[in-house]
Nucleic acid binder design. Structure first.
Lengths: 120, 120
DNA sequence: TTAACATCTGAACATCTGCTCAATCGTTTC
DNA sequence: GAAACGATTGAGCAGATGTTCAGATGTTAA
């Protein structure tokens, strides 16, 4: 080929696209909060803990035996979950029972599960 | 106090609690997949990208300018999002336009947003 | 008071993550 | 062809993350 047709690519206004997208993202505070919410459930250990607590309250050693990690590791994670208000603690003697404090978590898990099951 | 009442704590069957919870968690494969889904959206950068793409397709440089990171960083993230089937690519000349491939993501974000807004 | 038990805490560690930098590839334009 | 441009890739790095270990705290039982 000595000559080729000129390529005409679709016009694309970068300035406008960026401005519109910036609106869609919203303020960075809400983005950060959203990301944090997803982050809690992004660790398999924490996710297992939350899944287990959907049914009933559990003590630290039960969770540790259930997942297969140290009671220390469980305690660390529970502190984080408690700080984020996902879980509440009930003390009974030397034992500490944890249960879910958040009702919306189950919805999140349900939607995410549906999302996975409909993958090719 | 010279004498104190005997403490009677609520009975708790560890074996039974663990067995019940193990059922609630399910197989470890599904847990891993769930965690991975949440993990994609747990990074502020990726979350911003997804939020921006909810409205319209964007090219790499637009996203880079929008978020304030290198085009290289964007490209790295887009490869990940493409691998996970969250995004699809359309090439036009030297530009690469990305758009959302997954319809469920919006639901996930909506539920998570509601979850945040109803916090004390 | 001891001893045993459940939980919690801080430190150290290895691993993972997301970023930038530099170089490369593919396309378009001169 | 050469230069410009957009996108991609790999290496390297700093920071975050999850775990274990050792020790401390608090509670119950002997």
């Amino acid at each position: 080929m000595t000559r080729s047709k000129p390529h005409n690519h679709q016009a694309h206004n970068h300035q406008e696209a960026i401005r519109a997208a910036r609106k869609a993202i919203g303020d960075s505070d809400s983005v950060w909060g959203l990301a944090e919410t997803f982050k809690v459930l992004s660790d398999p250990t924490r996710l297992k803990i939350v899944l287990a607590l959907l049914k009933e309250e559990l003590c630290v050693l039960d969770i540790a035996a259930l997942i297969g990690i140290t009671d220390s590791a469980v305690s660390h994670q529970m502190r984080l979950l408690k700080t984020l208000r996902l879980v509440k603690q009930r003390k009974d003697g030397k034992m500490a029972f944890y249960s879910l404090e958040d009702e919306h978590i189950e919805d999140l898990i349900r939607v995410a599960t549906r999302h996975i099951s409909e993958k090719s």
